[in-house]
Design a protein around this nucleic acid. Structure first.
Lengths: 178, 178
DNA sequence: AAGGCCATGTAAGTAGTTACATGATTGA
DNA sequence: TCAATCATGTAACTACTTACATGGCCTT
């Protein structure tokens, strides 16, 4: 149950409408939590019903922009949730499964898929390092900034892992023609 | 939709009953795909209905062990799936989200949670490296073996990433009392 | 005959995905 | 006025989770 807390965090950083949130979930928020606009609108409704956020009093009609901000109860709930414990989820990765399956039924078509993933992860890595260069040029001592940087570095390290591992996997797939 | 293919892979590696599969999903299969016994029994039923696997003809009653094996259609389906394309899923990690939220509402209780995760990932890493030392003592040229080793190395590298990153995050959380 | 474990399931709920629907605003 | 885009939603479905139910077998 992390989506509501992702939304609370985003709204505390900056009050937004549903569509703005969707855009932010495609960018910076998306580095650690992804969500579609359908999920976001549904959850905004729930959070409003629960009294954790409110819409700026304005338009009752449909295609109209609706801006939300966090209420004190919402902030308290987020603060409570930060200290909550939650075990890390076990791995569930289709690509690793494909490799294992390929060991039984053959590697047909796997090569291309690995190359494709390598490209995707390399691009993501480039994007993250560009953001790091732009937003965190030197170490600062501001706590908030350091936390943001730490989260970004997790993204960088994860993408680096994938790039390295995919290269290794490609090598394992096509042994040197000796 | 990877669970059926995880089961097909497991059954091809070794025909099993539902409970045996559950145990294997807690061990080696679980390194890349986790599943509970409820998921497994349901999916076994679907795969049998679909003619991809069959139960060894035996017991019609409830508390009785039922052994499954893969039919030719099942093997063909798995082979097809291996070559199928599927984009990597975007990150969705509650712990990273907690760090980001902590930047807004404060880091209360986060320290303990990071330490706890560090312990969990260190243990998992130790387990993986023990398996590596036991099962892959030297490089072999058998394709199947190399693929298995590559998958295991992904697990090792991922756990290593978490251990390193969590240590760094703890340092960022508690700045040096200068 | 009772308790524990082996083994297979059912039921209900939550979260996420995919496809589609509807209205408002703006510029050609 | 038409098309594109902004903006908010509904509906149906799939996957996963959590809690519980049922029966068989073995040991004491």
């Amino acid at each position: 149950m992390s989506l509501p807390h992702a939304i609370l965090t985003a709204l505390l950083e900056k009050p937004s409408s549903g569509l703005e949130l969707t855009r932010r979930f495609d960018k910076s928020i998306g580095f650690f939590w992804s969500a579609t606009h359908q999920q976001i609108y549904r959850e905004l409704g729930r959070l409003e019903d629960g009294g954790l956020i409110e819409a700026l009093p304005q338009p009752p009609s449909r295609g109209q922009r609706k801006e939300y901000r966090v209420l004190p109860d919402g902030r308290a709930e987020l603060s409570r949730w930060v200290g909550e414990g939650q075990d890390p989820k076990p791995i569930r990765d289709p690509l690793l499964l494909r490799l294992r399956a390929a060991a039984v039924v053959g590697t047909d078509g796997l090569d291309a898929e690995l190359r494709r993933h390598l490209t995707v992860h390399q691009q993501q890595l480039d994007e993250y390092t560009a953001i790091e260069a732009r937003d965190f040029p030197a170490e600062t001592s501001a706590q908030e900034n350091r936390l943001h940087h730490t989260v970004l570095r997790a993204g960088i390290a994860l993408e680096t892992f994938w790039v390295d591992w995919l290269s290794e996997a490609l090598a394992a797939l096509t042994p040197p023609a000796s």
